[in-house]
Each structure stands twice: as C-alpha cells, then as structure tokens.
Design a protein around this nucleic acid. Structure first.
Lengths: 357, 357
DNA sequence: GCACAACATGTTATCGATGCCAATAGGAAG
DNA sequence: CTTCCTATTGGCATCGATAACATGTTGTGC
C-alpha cells in the first residue's frame, strides 16, 4: 500500500488503450478479444493476449459496468444471523453465482423491520446489481419494496411473493409433516410443537404442517409454544414441556432450539427419548453429536441457494423466460432422539423398563 | 421485471443531468449538493433535492466509481465454512463496514490452496474494491499474493503477514494458555490436546500456547491429536482419547470438535467431567446446551471483524497513518465440562465413585 | 473606493470500456 | 470480371459522475 501513495502518479494501472497500443490494434479489438467475441483472428488474439500479459492488464469493472449497463453481480438481502440454515444458504448462493460468472454482494440487516429491509434492498440497487435474491421472510410488502423489486429482477426465498418476483422455497409444510408423522408412526398419541417466531414465514409454514397432520389424523392439537430460534428459547420452552406429564413427543422448529429443549428435559430428569421424543429441523453439523443424536429434518439449503441463483441468472439472460416457482424437498433423518412412547428405548436403557409411568 | 423489458427504451433511469435540468442548475451543482459539499446555497440545495425527489433519482455507482476512482467497498477473502467463528467474524465486518459507509463483497473459497486464494483475491481487485480483508490462514504467501496485496490496502486476520499488510488477531496462544492453565489449576497432571488442521495458523498458535504452558510448569507434554475442525474429527479423536487410561483432561481446539470428543467419550462410557474434563474454544451458541455444558474460551470474533474494518478504513482515509498491529483478547468461560480429576463431580454423580479406574 | 478574499456556480476534460456503424479485405457466386 | 457477402477491424460516441479549473458575485478591511 505504500507503493500506491508513495509512487506518485506514475503508476496508473494500464488501461485497454495501453494494451491496444502495445499490441498494435484498436482498443475495440482488445475488448473483443477479452470478451471472447468470435470474430477475432487467431494471430490478433495472440498479440493482444501477449500485450495483456506484458502490461499486467486487468479489466476495470466500473468502466465495464458503466458502459455495458450490466454489472454481472447479484445482491442478497438476508438477516444477520449465525443460524446454520442462513449461512448454508449463503454459501450455496455464492458458489452457484461464482460458477455462473456473477459476484455476490450481501446486504444484511439486524432486524425484520420493513424499513430495514427497504434500506438493504436499496443499498443493493444503488450499487447496481443486476438482480436480487430476497432471503428474508417478508410478511409485509411495503410500497417501497414493491417499487424496488419492480425495477430489478428479484427472486425471493421463502418469502411473500411480491408482484414482480419468482419464488424458490423449501416445502416447509412438508418438513413439518415428515417430523410429525414420524412421531405418530412411532405410536405417540399426539405431538407438541415449539415453533419459531411468528413473523417468520417458514415458522408459520412448519406450524401449519404440524397442525394439519395432527388434524388429519384426528389427534388432539396441543397449544403451541414459541421460541426465537435461539437455543435459549428452546431451553425455556423445554423447562415448560418437561413439567407437563402428557408430553411424550415434541417437534421443535429448529435444531438449535431442539438442543435447548433436550438440555432442559435432561435437567428436569426426563429422558430423551425414553420419556420424551424430540425432532428438530435443519440437520446442523452438530445434530449427530449431541446426547442423544438428534432426529431431524434435513433441508437442502445449499441447493436452494443454487436454485435461486440459477433462476435469477436464467431470467437475466432471457427476460422473456416464464417465471416458474420451484420447491426443493426436505428429508427426515432418524437418529436417536425419537422412540416409541413408554420409555423402553431410553438413551441409557434402564434395565427394568417400567412401561407407562 | 416485466417493466424493464416491456417498457422499451423509454424508461431510462434519470441521470444527474436530468436532475440538473429540472432544478435549473448545472450537473456539478447537483453533484456537490448530493455529496454534501459546503459551498451550496440553501435555496439551491432545496431546488436540487426537490428535483431529485420528483424524478426519483438514484446515484449511479459505476459512474461514480469510474470517475472518482474510489468504490467505497471492501472485499473479504474467506473460507466457505459454516464454522461459527468465521460467520461471526463476517457479520462483525459487515456491520462495521456498513457503519463506515462501505459495502462488503465476499470472495469465498472452498479450500486453502494458494491458487484458490489468489483467485479470490484477484476477483476482488478486479471488482475494484478499495481495500481487502484477508481472513484466511495464509501459510504460504505466493509471489502473486504478494503482488496483489501490494496494489491494494490489505488487512489480514490471523494470517501471515505479507509485506504490505496490517494484522489484526485474537491472541490464540493466550486462548490456549487460559484453557490449559484452567485444567492444571483444577489439579490435572497434564492436559491432552486435539488440535486444528496444521495449515491453519490459529491452530498452530493454540497448539503452541498449550505446549508452552505445560512446559513452563514442567509437565509431561502428551502427543497431540489433530482434527479438521469438524465434529466428526472430534469424534474420531475422542474414540482414541477415551481408550487411553491416563487421560483426564483434554483441550480441544474448537467447540465443534469438542462436541464430537464428548460424544465419543460418552459412547465409551467415560464420564465428562467425572472421568475426563474437556475444554473447547469459540463459545458457540450451543456450548451451553450440550451435556454437559461446555467450558470454553470465548473469542470476540465480531469485534475482531469490526477492528479490521476500522483499521482498513483508517488507512483508506489516510494512507500515511502508521499501521499498528492490534490484538483482541479471548476469555475463559467455565461451565460444567471441567472438574478436578478423580471423578468426584461427574455429570450424573455416580453414588459410589470409584476414584481412578 | 479599491483590492482581495470567500463563496457560489458553471465549463470542460476525463475516467475506461463497450455499442454501433463504417470500412477494408478476401473469397464465393454468377 | 463484377457483385455481393462475410469475416475482421477501426472510429467515434457514449455511459454518468466527478476533478480541476474558470467564472461571476458578494462582502470586507484599509
């Protein structure tokens, strides 16, 4: 960095015109060569590439964007959380984008305020992204958001559909149905539920899937408890559930909350899954390594991110292409935190298993 | 998005010249008004702002960058991992950057190959970032990296120092010393260690801190085991440690590996901390919620990211400012996975504790 | 009353690449 | 041998904002 300041004005980085001069061709030909235009003679191409190499030429992105009107970058609006799901999603987006030749810039927000989302979105459009992936659960689509998404191609992930938007989503309701049905199949009378925060669309979908499954089977639908995705909130709810004698099966809306629930149950002396079975959602890396290893619903977040990018890129390349909604499917991963009711298959199998009490 | 394609060529977004025309002033005055230049009369400013509002003018970033030579964006090179530490770091960087008026673009890589890092770095410089934060553990600084970091202000985090670079780091060696000393203070004869992968500088620093502490106390230094940060690798190493009768205390280089270690020990019937005490590093959110709650060393990742940004921005604003290395300090968090040796305070206290075997 | 400063604004050149159109050359077709 | 076409290549305008310089305008101190 010293070079830059100390070197004075001598070291202006080489521009395309410099390359053209060295190669003995016009700047236009250099441009064509570098962007892979077919109509460039092999000998010319070689001269240009040699000059590029000799000068250490690097393309100037700003100029290219200004001139072509396309930035080859996409923006992502997301919440600033360390939840496994969001992070994995982001990486899926990044690698797919990179593969498609796009760069990614993220605008994260701390909260779900509509105004915060508006800000994030406008930061991205100001920056000149070609398209946007909205990875926040939009409950309320404000006029400003509507307006912004209308001016730039947008794909939403698990969010409300705005008028000018394609949607990519995991079938959250299916995730919940898989979990709930698994517990019912094991023989539990009914299943309790620790939901995610109400503002989150995916939390709402999971709750709906859980409720639907119970109702379809004619089971009692217990009142639902609500957390905020944090392990702490799971713990709090676990302390409540553990005190209710009826509870034999719990579907928790995320693995991290499930960890908290299990912890609380242990502290209350309830065995998992001996007394109470627990299912989470996400299949985080640590799910196999808690006690007991957590049964959960795996979600293909990375694929979802990649899918969103593919949709967006397709639209950017051909704005006429019909938008088509897409969903990817979650899968149940059975580990050791679930068992038939009655305490027969506890984590540390009690020899004389007194079924029932 | 339909608008864009269907609207034809009529809807070119308004440019500064349009605003100038409407406001009845020169484009330059518009520019000055919008960038907060002091020498603009109040009445003029008002006219300009009214015109901006009326036309819905939004600045064109590409043009601004091309013209001014500054992009007000910084790049981050990091590994594509979901490890808590890296994610938290990223959010620290993002919020600090946003506060300073910079946008962040990330270039993530899958592996630690020097060439992959070179690619990521050059993607960022091509994109025209004003500065770069290198958040990968650089063991080998190639000529190309040297060259790239020389052409753009760079701050490395926990990496090898390149010639033109400032460094921000957590004192990893201190983290290891805190953990090791804690275990020795509890009365353990010595402490075993599950290290991170050898290519990671921070893994090496932790190993060094651990070794130094043992040697300073004249303790036997056991051979170290090595993982790859994943819970799986912790599990594998746990299966080994659990079979070695001498082992009473283990310092694991990350919480996620520690989860694996604890799981393996449980499966082998070794109690934690009754038989073996375990300390991790990171203080991830789930650390409080495993069985037993994990004693660990908390690292202020978010602060570190913010610090890196502050350094970088300071340098961007004043290239003459002397680079000063900075470190932030980790802190021990004692929970329930550590205890004096001898099995007296096990997780589930065995009534007749047969100390030793 | 004059010189000079400070402020407010306009003019022009420029950043670096690309889009569009024109121009040249070589070859195929008639 | 002419005409037309295609493959290459160059010239010029342009994207939208800002830096640098120029201009005009008001005010101030002696």
């Amino acid at each position: 960095m010293e070079m830059r300041s100390a070197g004075g004005d001598a070291v202006r980085p080489p521009a395309m015109a410099d390359v053209a001069r060295v190669a003995g061709v016009s700047p236009q030909t250099v441009s064509r060569t570098l962007s892979g235009h077919p109509s460039v003679q092999e000998s010319t191409r070689a001269k240009v590439l040699a000059a590029v190499d000799q000068l250490g030429y690097r393309k100037n992105n700003a100029a290219r964007v200004l001139s072509s009107g396309r930035s080859r970058s996409i923006g992502v609006v997301m919440l600033r959380t360390v939840f496994y799901s969001r992070v994995t999603l982001m990486y899926g987006i990044e690698s797919a984008a990179q593969e498609a030749g796009y760069s990614v810039s993220a605008a994260t927000t701390d909260c779900l305020d509509t105004s915060a989302i508006e800000d994030a979105l406008s930061r991205l459009t100001d920056q000149g992204v070609d398209g946007v992936i909205l990875a926040v659960p939009l409950m309320h689509v404000s006029r400003r958001i509507e307006q912004l998404t209308r001016s730039v191609p947008t794909v939403t992930i698990d969010g409300s559909r705005t008028s000018a938007t394609e949607v990519v989503a995991v079938d959250q309701s299916l995730a919940a149905r898989l979990a709930t049905r698994h517990l019912l199949d094991l023989g539990h009378e009914t299943v309790w539920h620790v939901a995610g925060p109400g503002e989150w669309l995916e939390a709402a979908s999971r709750t709906r899937g859980w409720r639907d499954t119970l109702e379809a089977e004619g089971r009692v639908v217990p009142p639902e408890l609500e957390g905020d995705w944090s392990p702490e909130s799971g713990y709090r709810n676990g302390l409540i559930l553990g005190r209710i004698p009826d509870v034999t099966a719990v579907f928790v809306a995320s693995d991290e909350m499930a960890f908290g629930v299990v912890r609380a149950l242990h502290e209350l002396g309830r065995r998992v899954p001996g007394d109470i079975s627990v299912v989470g959602v996400d299949d985080i890396a640590l799910a196999s390594y808690c006690s007991p290893p957590l049964t959960t619903v795996a979600q293909p977040f990375a694929e979802m991110g990649a899918l969103a990018v593919r949709h967006l890129v397709r639209h950017l390349n051909d704005p006429e292409a019909a938008p088509e909604p897409a969903a990817v499917e979650p899968a149940l991963v059975v580990r050791a935190s679930t068992a038939p009711p009655g305490g027969s298959r506890g984590e540390k199998p009690p020899r004389g298993s007194s079924s029932g009490t």
